[in-house]
Structures are given as structure tokens and as C-alpha cells.
């Protein structure tokens, strides 16, 4: 359970869990495009998209961010009093088409401590793979979360 001063459960590393499913719809694509100011015809113009590489409109990969999923495995972290989303990698693997049914599976990829200018921090890296109804991966995200102690009124 313990590693250095950080308290977490390393046994969750690599354990995969399904955290949700959703459908890709034309309406969802249009709503997402409006939210991010998307005008790329791959996502917004059926006529141009039909003549493009995918034969029709596809979903912008970031649409996976617009749907809340479950949390997945709990590393039972007891460290610091502040947590924030420090970074993310999004890999685009294959197109998502309207009518696709997407399943998201997550695992904790890494848990590690690091000491920086502001003191000790604990990093948790969670990788989510989104797959279509054929089981083919379409998008993968790796989110890094940082936990650290924040002194009120301090840095």
C-alpha cells in the first residue's frame, strides 16, 4: 500500500475495466462541432465528406471528451489535498462513423512520485481505449493527474 510517503494501491496498475458505452449520432457530432467551433467539412459537410477519405461525415475524435464515463479502478490514493488534470495525450487510431457504438475501457498505466519546485507530487496516468462495435480501437487517451499538498495562501 505504501511507496515512499505516498499512499496508494499499486495492484490496480494494468487492471482494465469497462467504464461506459455510447452511440455516435449525427446530432451529437453537430452539437460537439458547435461547442468547439468546428468547421472542418469532414465533420460538418456531408457533400464534401462523401468525396473525402472516409466516404461521409465522421465524428471528431475529441467527441469522446464530451461524454462522462465511470471512474474505473480506484488506486485508493491518499496523498495531498489538491488534485488536477495536468496533461493528456489523445491518439487517433481510426474514424468513428454515425451509428457506431463505442465502448470505453480504462486502466491505470502508471503511479509514481516526483519532487518538484513546489514539493512532492503523485502522478497517476490513466489510459482509456475507445473501441467500436467491431472491437476495433478508434481513439485512445492518456490522462495525467497530479496530487500534491497545497498550503492555503501559499504557492
Amino acid at each position: 500500500m505504501a511507496e515512499g510517503e505516498a499512499k496508494f494501491d499499486p495492484s490496480v496498475i494494468g487492471v482494465e475495466e469497462e467504464i461506459g458505452q455510447f452511440d455516435i449520432t449525427q446530432e451529437q457530432i453537430a452539437a460537439y462541432c458547435a461547442a468547439v467551433g468546428e468547421t472542418n467539412p469532414l465533420y460538418t459537410n456531408e457533400a464534401i465528406a462523401q468525396a473525402g477519405p472516409y466516404g461521409g461525415i465522421v465524428a471528431p475524435p475529441g467527441i469522446v471528451h464530451s461524454i462522462s464515463m465511470g471512474n474505473g479502478p480506484d488506486a485508493k490514493i491518499r496523498f495531498g489535498n489538491a488534485a488536477f488534470h495536468a496533461g493528456e495525450k489523445m491518439e487517433v487510431i481510426a474514424p468513428m462513423y454515425p451509428g457506431d457504438h463505442i465502448t470505453a475501457r480504462i486502466h491505470v498505466k502508471e503511479l509514481y512520485e516526483k519532487t518538484g519546485r513546489t514539493g512532492s507530487m503523485l502522478f497517476e496516468v490513466r489510459r482509456t481505449i475507445f473501441s467500436n462495435q467491431k472491437g476495433e480501437p478508434v481513439v485512445a487517451t492518456e490522462k495525467s493527474f497530479v496530487r500534491r499538498e497545497v498550503v492555503p495562501g501559499g504557492e
Binding site: 471528431p60 475524435p61 475529441g62 471528451h65 489523445m90
Partner: peptide
Amino acid sequence: GVLSLDVAYRVIG
């Protein structure tokens, strides 16, 4: 944060 990321992706797209 994910919306900022998505906007950056939009520009690259």
C-alpha cells in the same frame, strides 16, 4: 481542460 485540448486539436485538424 479537455475543451482546450479539443480546440487545439480542431486547429491542427
